[in-house]
């Protein structure tokens, strides 16, 4: 079974700075793999291990500058996948979910013969939880989100979905796009050996000349601004002595 996992490179959130005009400064934030996409990769690898089929393929859409980073590529490829395909163009940095899904669909069609696409619950930065659902419809595949278990049953999949108030158990005929929850598995942590081996795995970046690229979405971002900050007193007592606890309690009592 040919499996693709979709992963997004996102800025390290700890290093996002806020400028005085409340806009964001991403220049110091290195790209990393979206936290919740690691569960998608893990789910793909576990299915491949269960079936003994070829190693899953990773597909990513992003800026050429970002995706060329070999540390990022290794972070993507050190978790059990066999190859990485990127749709890369500097216009693809902040496109909407529809345009992202169009590019993923173009890459998946170009790879050919893909039967199962696994997406994460949401991207680490935008987290709209929409790229998977849109992609499923664009490809015309069976399309499910909130998937918390995937089991192979002959040429079909048994899939469990964890919804707000209920669990669904479904039988899915391939091809399918499944967006998985973050509790579907515990993503493996790569060791030095895996990271070194990742450097040797094939990585292909496709540009506008290689496939039909969608460079623009139809949602316009008017502004992205940090919310106003609330001033806090920051009265912090060091140590759990009786006096400190009593002080804390005095302050607490004022608001109880």
């Amino acid at each position: 079974m040919k499996i693709v996992a979709c992963v997004k490179a996102v800025p390290e959130e700890q290093d996002i700075a806020i400028k005085s005009d409340k806009t964001l400064d991403l220049s110091k934030a290195e790209l990393k793999v979206g936290q919740y996409d690691l569960n998608a990769v893990e789910a793909a690898v576990q299915l491949q291990e269960a079936t003994g089929s070829e190693e899953p393929i990773l597909v990513t859409v992003g800026s050429t500058k970002g995706l060329k980073n070999s540390k990022l590529q290794k972070a993507m490829l050190s978790r059990g996948a066999g190859a990485l395909f990127g749709v890369a163009d500097d216009s693809l940095d902040s496109i909407d979910a529809f345009a992202t899904a169009k590019n993923l669909a173009a890459a998946i069609s170009k790879i050919g013969g893909v039967e199962l696409v696994i997406c994460g619950e949401g991207s680490g930065d935008i987290y709209s939880q929409q790229v998977g659902p849109i992609l499923g419809q664009l490809l015309g595949f069976a399309n499910l989100n909130a998937v918390s278990r995937i089991t192979l049953m002959g040429d079909k999949l048994e899939v469990e979905r964890t919804l707000e108030n209920e669990i669904e158990v479904l039988e899915v005929t391939l091809p399918a796009v499944l967006s998985v929850t973050t509790d579907i598995n515990k993503a493996r942590i790569p060791g030095l050996k895996e990271i070194l081996a990742a450097g040797k795995k094939p990585t292909t970046l496709w540009g506008a000349a290689d496939l039909e690229m969608t460079k623009e979405g139809n949602i316009e971002v008017i502004s992205t601004l940090a919310p106003p900050e609330t001033q806090r007193q920051q009265m912090v007592f060091e140590g759990d002595s009786e006096e400190n606890i009593a002080q804390l309690l005095d302050n607490l009592r004022k608001v109880l």
């Binding site: 899904a101 790229v131 659902p133 849109i134 419809q137 399309n143 989100n145 919804l163 949602i219």
Partner: peptide, 18 residues
């Protein structure tokens, strides 16, 4: 969860995003 899936499916069919 189901609403999100429906929104994405519908938007994609309409050629737009959510």
């Amino acid at each position: 969860r189901k609403g999100r899936l429906m929104a994405g499916t519908l938007a994609a069919a309409l050629g737009t995003s959510v």
